[in-house]
Design a protein around this nucleic acid. Sequence first.
DNA 1: TAGGCCATCTGGTCCT
DNA 2: AGGACCAGATGGCCTA
Length: 188
Amino acid sequence: MKSKRKAVKASRRTWSDPEPDLEPDTELEPGSSEQEGSEASVRIGGSWRGSLRGGDGKRQGGVGGGRRRRQYGSSKERSVRRLESNERERQRMHKLNNAFQALREAIPHVKTDKKLSKIETLTLAKNYIKSLTTIILDMSGACLPSGEVPSEANAAKLLQCYQQHLEEDGEEDLTQYLTHVHSLGQRS
DNA sequence: TAGGCCATCTGGTCCT
DNA sequence: AGGACCAGATGGCCTA
């Protein structure tokens, strides 16, 4: 794992680090409907951004007409809230990255020095699940009534069988489940 | 040096 | 009301 991102970038000016020239109380609020002349350019995070959600309109608010920013008290209060918000977001992203790491370790792949990227991890995981599903369906005779043809329609029964296996053995290892199913298949 | 990947900041929106 | 979630923007690091 690369040891970067250990410290917050110093170059980025933030809410907690307002432009020195500006009086704190007169600082323009980025994106504020009251302050901005147009949506073409909006000062956010020390940088200039294009129109706000204007492109796809996916997240345009239900509030009719102009966007209303939540009104906070003093600029100091806003700074505190922003910092708290940043910290929560950081923690959230760390949790997300931990989940990605767990997923990396759960899926088999060719071991290299380079760790899987997020998109690679998701793609491999999807393929892995598809492969396992195929295998399970192929072996489904072990859990399905005799004569019943393995099909996607039997997936629910297979899932039920898997869940029952988990309840009985308290084992969450799919590999062992597959071994179990395989041995049943050989017996029958 | 360009492009990929990533961490972080940020404001809007959703949810409890 | 406040936290969670989301997506855009930015800049740093790394590799081909």
